[in-house]
Design a protein around this nucleic acid. Structure first.
Length: 283
DNA sequence: ATGTGTTCCTGTCCGC
DNA sequence: TGCGGACAGGAACACA
């Protein structure tokens, strides 16, 4: 489920429970997710203090006092649930482990953080903090879309000559980090760009125009998450899920929201994934 | 080197 | 209310 804004929202939600606090115990309830868990994961996590929580692309990175960094990816269906240590809650006031609760962190301060992932496309790993950037899952990932490295010139240069549809190119994590199917659809709609166009054949100015739009769409989504975060202590304590109002994603058949456009949102499949767009105003 | 299709896994929804 | 099929926010991998 989670793309960059959702992962950022989860990271922020975890901060009060985890940052600066010691992991008292990690309960590893199965041997793997998408990949096998690292050797002795529970022992390596126990008694480690979380120095900081970072995000790189769709990965959450917890730098530990042991000199190691915990990498977490939520895959399609991964969630982080917080229980206990909330205002009005008693310590050790935790629900029993539920279906698909795979890893449970008991934190100093009384909070419990539970990683739940029905489809198990998520991942966790541990590596030396100094080598984290070179981790095989992170090594090839492109620039952060909200950072300075992600510029108009960069994107134009990166997509030059590419025969791939612009939709697929933006979904490629080596081009830009953190975009997923929803936000690519939203970005291309705002840019009025046809997702089927070959990336290398789109005018440079139109590729350049994608950069501020990407920043805008992601920024707004993070803000929406942030505002719902104030109220993140819901009944289930779930983080990172909030009502978005998407303009085209999952809105097949709806009138195109572009002002003055009389088109209808359509759905096609590109490299096996749904693309929602308006064939009338996206050219 | 590029681009595309398959695959991992479970849950939900929709039509019959 | 059951059953089958399509589909789901990701991304590594095998292959043309």
């Amino acid at each position: 489920m989670p793309e960059l804004p959702e992962v950022e929202t989860v990271r922020r939600g975890l901060l009060p429970a985890m940052e600066g606090r010691t992991i008292l115990a990690a309960d590893i309830r199965r041997p793997d997710l998408r990949f096998p868990f690292p050797e002795r994961m529970a022992e390596r996590l126990a008694c480690a203090r979380v120095l900081g929580l970072r995000r790189r692309s769709k990965y959450i990175l917890a730098d530990l006092s042991t000199g190691e960094t915990l990498l977490v990816h939520l895959g399609m269906s991964g969630r982080m649930l917080i229980s206990g240590a909330m205002p009005g809650a008693f310590h050790h006031d935790h629900p029993a482990p539920a279906k698909h609760d795979h890893v449970v962190f008991d934190m100093e301060g009384g909070a419990r953080v539970t990683f739940n992932d029905a489809r198990r496309f998520g991942a966790m790993d541990l590596m030396a903090t100094v080598t984290a950037d070179e981790h095989w899952l992170l090594r090839e990932i492109g620039p952060e879309p909200l950072g300075n490295e992600f510029s108009e010139d960069y994107l134009v240069g990166r997509l030059k000559g590419r025969a791939m549809p612009v939709k697929a190119a933006l979904l490629d994590q080596r081009v830009v980090a953190g975009l997923g199917n929803i936000y690519v659809c939203e970005v291309l709609h705002r840019a009025r760009l046809d997702p089927r166009r070959k990336a290398g054949q789109v005018a440079a100015a139109r590729i350049a125009a994608l950069v501020p739009i990407i920043r805008e769409v992601l920024g707004e989504a993070i803000e929406a998450g942030g505002s719902s975060l104030r109220d993140y202590r819901q009944a289930d304590g779930e983080l990172g899920y909030f009502q978005h109002t998407f303009r085209v994603y999952d809105r097949e058949g709806a009138p195109c929201p572009t002002p003055g456009c009389a088109g209808t949102v359509g759905r096609i499949v590109q490299s096996g994934r749904s693309t929602f767009f308006c064939p009338r105003c996206q050219r």
